[in-house]
């Protein structure tokens, strides 16, 4: 079956959704590639396709453009006008294990802090090996110092964040060390996010 390409850049919401709707109605079951240039459209199109029993198999971002590739999911049927009844909003995005890495110190272990610092540097450098399982890194207590200017692993953490790993940095800790303004990576967070993250994670690696 051929793939339809819908170029929706520059179209305000809900136009991109309407383009998808037209496409599905005129050519039910077709594969689609949808190009949009804002996250509102990206989200709306993804939701619409979910209700229409389409699966967004990939979402790639290139510059200002999102490229959504969608195909009918296994439950797709040609006549499902009663689809409004089924609410399929909350599909998990990734199917792997959600791994949370919890770092509460700038060094690993006790004995020698110079060695401990090197070990931490190594540890963070090798974290990308977890692949897409690596979901979130939380930095607490002295661990927040890894996120500031001059940190030996700053570039590693920035690269991870760029690849979609969520990095949360404890705001109370940054304030305590008075380095709030030196944070160079991650989002400032609070204890509720920390606890919730632990609950949501499939696996927690505590350093």
């Amino acid at each position: 079956m051929s793939t339809r390409i819908l170029e929706c850049q520059g179209l305000p919401c809900p136009q991109p959704v309407l383009r998808c709707k037209d496409c599905i109605e005129s050519d039910p079951g077709t594969e689609m590639v949808i190009l949009v240039d804002n996250d509102a459209a990206c989200e709306n199109v993804t939701r619409f396709l979910g209700v229409k029993k389409y699966e967004v198999v990939s979402t790639e971002k290139d510059g200002d453009t999102w490229k959504l590739t969608a195909r009918p999911s296994s439950t797709f049927t040609l006549d499902d006008d009663a689809s409004a009844e089924t609410n399929e909003f909350s599909q998990p995005r990734d199917k792997g294990t959600k791994t949370l890495v919890f770092i509460a110190s700038p060094v690993i272990g006790e004995g020698d802090d110079v060695l401990g610092g090197k070990l931490m540097q190594n540890f963070v450098s090798v974290l990308p090996e977890l692949g897409s399982d690596l979901w979130r890194i939380i930095l607490l207590n002295g661990g927040v110092k890894l996120a500031i200017t001059g940190s030996p692993v700053l570039d590693k953490l920035q690269a991870l964040e760029k690849n979609g790993v969520s990095i949360l940095v404890c705001g109370t800790c940054l304030e305590f060390f008075t380095i709030l303004d030196q944070k160079q990576v991650g989002e400032t967070t609070n204890m509720l996010d920390v606890v919730t993250s632990m609950q949501l994670a499939d696996k927690v690696l505590s350093m």
Binding site: P12, C13, V17, A40, E43, V45, R47, V51, A84, F89
Partner: peptide, 18 residues
């Protein structure tokens, strides 16, 4: 609620949330 699930959320509303 039904419309929102179908992708009818205006861009301005997303912007508010962000």
């Amino acid at each position: 609620v039904e419309l929102a699930g179908m992708g009818m959320i205006p861009a301005g509303s997303f912007a508010n949330k962000k």
